[in-house]
């Protein structure tokens, strides 16, 4: 039963990627052919064009910046919520969730005029807006980690003579490391895959992968380039995810 659902779920995730992989290597592919008529390496060549490489770097910089801002803020928010009386903390949680409920376009259009009025440089403005969008994810990652966090570990360390800094470095941070990595990964994804804020708030100064992907997908005959760009957007987060989960997998196997 469980296995059956697992297989279905796996298929649901992997199946849409198969046509994408095929378009990536297809020279020509017309319905009703099941497989491409001709194959070409043009997609692969496009991936290494300077345009796509610099867009990848910009996307990575944007994702990293969003993660750098939203992860610590999420930790602070989660710590603050934990300290509040329950009635207050519920309210704060709802407020922190609102960015998920507001359509991104509305958020962007509303924030843009304000950010322009106070002369925020485009890169920082995009990071700021996306950090708000990423905050619900990071906050709730830390919320769930802190829910099962036992303060007595820190107290034991203090009793054994550790000072505040040592407790932070050797007890708290290692215990929250996995949650931090997960939160940072989600925040990175928000910046890495964003289109609308990058375009409208970035004012065309930021040429990220999704921007190039969006404009390529808007035209006829760009299927191969579009597939190559889609893979360029999907690939790096998958590698990151694998890198994040590898140590834990190894640990589980060792046990």
């Amino acid at each position: 039963m469980h296995l059956g659902f697992g297989v279905l779920l796996g298929a649901w995730i992997v199946l849409p990627l198969i046509p994408l992989m095929l378009w990536f290597v297809a020279g020509q592919w017309r319905a009703p052919d099941i497989l491409p008529g001709t194959y070409s390496a043009q997609g692969l060549i496009e991936l290494f064009s300077p345009q796509i490489q610099s867009a990848t770097a910009t996307s990575a910089a944007l994702g990293t910046s969003v993660a750098l801002v939203a992860t610590p803020l999420g930790l602070l928010a989660a710590l603050a919520i934990r300290r509040l009386p329950r009635t207050h903390s519920r309210f704060v949680e709802v407020v922190l969730l609102t960015p998920l409920a507001i359509p991104p376009f509305a958020l962007v259009m509303g924030a843009n005029v304000l950010l322009l009025r106070i002369y925020t440089p485009s890169f920082s403005a995009v990071v700021l807006v996306l950090a708000v969008a990423a905050l619900p994810y990071t906050t709730f990652m830390f919320r769930s980690a802190l829910a099962s966090y036992d303060d007595r570990f820190e107290e034991v360390a203090r009793t054994l003579g550790a000072n505040a800094r040592q407790t932070l470095a050797h007890v708290r941070l290692p215990l929250l490391a996995a949650a931090t990595a997960r939160a940072a990964f989600l925040a990175f994804l928000v910046g890495w895959g964003d289109y609308i804020a990058t375009l409208l708030i970035g004012g065309g100064q930021l040429r990220t992968l999704p921007l190039i992907l969006g404009s390529a997908a808007a035209g006829s005959g760009n299927e191969q380039l579009t597939a190559a760009l889609s893979l360029a957007v999907i690939g790096p987060p998958l590698v990151l995810l694998a890198a994040l989960s590898a140590p834990r997998l190894r640990e589980r196997i060792r046990r």
């Binding site: 259009m109 843009n112 005029v113 322009l116 375009l199 409208l200 004012g203 065309g204 040429r207 921007l211 190039i212 969006g214 404009s215 997908a217 808007a218």
Partner: peptide
């Protein structure tokens, strides 16, 4: 600056 739709450019100007 590549855009998927020209109104995106106009929106930016109006903002």
């Amino acid at each position: 600056v590549p855009v998927a739709n020209t109104p995106d450019a106009l929106n930016r100007v109006l903002n």
